[in-house]
Design a binder for these strands. Structure first.
Lengths: 287, 287
DNA sequence: ACCAAAGGGTCCATATTATGGACTGTCTCT
DNA sequence: AGAGACAGTCCATAATATGGACCCTTTGGT
């Protein structure tokens, strides 16, 4: 039995919970019809009995379901409910819907809300445009490494240089093996351009002729909250129109930041009672 | 160390995962500003170090967050994202939004979507009406035992008698201690009435003067999917209007069943390849 | 200002629990 | 009909989670 030694000062337990939740995230990533056990075993690095046992626990909790005929594992109803409940605090999507609808209406193109998840970007919503030729490069729920796609690139571009390098390093293997259109150096070049222009541009790197522009927005404390982006075929993405679209995106990104600022005020001011100063959340053993 | 013996034929492991996910559900229930550790310890029955360790695991996964100043534990952003991802399969709320909006517009009263979660009913959405006097008996995310509230009662009423008795028995303790307005016998009487009339009525049992009517709808396979309901002050709930509201609810419930039927067809027909017959999902050791 | 109480967080020896190699059953393709 | 792929399961072993006892910080009372 080869086991990972708890490297470094890692002073916390609950391995199996960690593993189970990693499986949950894994299953969440997969858009379509869930994952078969074999893929889960491969992608998680766990072995079959362990994966299966953890999956059964997730199934008992309703977070995962196993489809009867394909035997694939996919997200369960409880995950959906939990999300609705969590949306009371983290209602980014709801806040953004108005912006997305307006963007798609004005521009006739498809608009997206993406957020950052560690080194990845997740698409939370895709609002269809009315223009007859539409690209389907990005669907709700799809994840790509930061830098892959317009919104994703926009988020990466507003991070500090140090973090960008850390992320690029972490994603290098995936980029090289699974994203042939995105050699790391090209992403770095795109980043520089994005910073110069004030908006990101994906010139059809993911799907040929499917271009995108994006702009990130932040929480009041400076953390990246997400990105709004628009996608269209290349002929609708000449430089002049890029700028025009970026202007609309910018307006809506500002709106989002305004709303988030309001939310923050409400949240902190409704805290129970008079000002408390935050205690560090982990142990603070005296000398 | 007192430990529960795995009673009966329970042949599955992963205790700590089960416990962690129970904590997650627990935290999800609490609407407002999360739960303090002490409450979590009490309500879960776990002891402090264990609860904390599991919570840390949930926090590492992003499913739970701990608020810096109140130290309360509440649902994290990952829970929200997971929910959005799960909504691709379990998009009940999205399907229902149109119905809810229409109901609230036509009736001017507040409408609700509730679903069944084991022996409980969870409110997934509250669509405000325009009438100036509104009841606030039910908020998004709140849970009550089946039978408590109009939508909840409607779902209970369409279950088979045996299951009703099982649920009523399971909930008896909570009803007696936490729902003084709902003595089990009254619920049983309400159920009979609901079946006779074809819609459920909550005559202000939860909050005085706040009445509600509800109708359940089902999945194509007959399982209860959820309930639509409307709430208003008693003066707007005279018998004639109850019937009128029930008519609107009924129209929308039919719409929901139609949509669910469509979804089911799409889901099963898009299954990978030709018909496979379902294998039983647990072990099938030969004789 | 001080003390007691309440609550959050943590340590560590112990015994319960998860682990994974090896196995079986089932379906599919040739 | 046999090989291969995949789902699911068993069980001795060893790694892991457990919880009583403890510390620190904040709060409320006098």
């Amino acid at each position: 039995m080869e086991h990972f030694v708890a490297s470094a000062g890692d002073l916390s337990g609950s391995q199996s919970v960690d593993r189970a939740l990693r499986l949950l995230a894994l299953i969440g990533r997969e858009p379509a019809g869930g994952l078969p056990l074999s893929d889960i075993v491969i992608e998680s690095g766990l072995n079959k009995p362990t994966a299966r046992r953890l999956l059964l626990a997730l199934i008992r909790a309703g977070l995962v379901e196993q489809e009867a005929l394909s035997r694939h594992y996919c997200l369960g109803e409880e995950a959906f409910v939990l999300g609705v409940l969590a949306a009371r605090r983290h209602g980014l999507l709801e806040l953004a819907m108005e912006s997305l609808r307006r963007l798609s209406e004005i521009t006739m193109d498809t608009s997206f809300l993406s957020i950052r998840r560690e080194n990845y970007s997740v698409c939370l919503h895709r609002e269809e445009g009315t223009y007859p030729v539409r690209t389907h490069a990005l669907q709700t729920g799809q994840q790509h490494p930061l830098g892959v796609g317009a919104g994703s690139l926009a988020m990466l571009a507003v991070l500090p240089d140090g973090e960008i390098e850390r992320i690029m390093a972490a994603n290098e293997a995936v980029l090289l093996t699974q994203y042939p259109g995105f050699p790391p150096d090209e992403i770095r070049a795109d980043l520089t351009l994005a910073r110069q222009r004030g908006f990101s541009l994906n010139p059809g790197r993911l799907v040929a002729s499917s271009w995108g522009v994006g702009i990130a927005f932040r929480y009041p404390d400076g953390r990246v909250a997400g990105a709004l982006s628009l996608a269209a075929i290349d002929s609708r993405m000449v430089p002049a129109r890029q700028v025009e679209l970026a202007r609309h995106l910018s307006t809506e990104a500002e709106r989002m930041e305004r709303l988030l600022a309001q939310m923050f005020v409400r949240k902190t001011s409704q805290g129970d009672g008079p000002q408390q100063r935050a205690r560090p959340i982990t142990k603070s053993r005296s000398a």
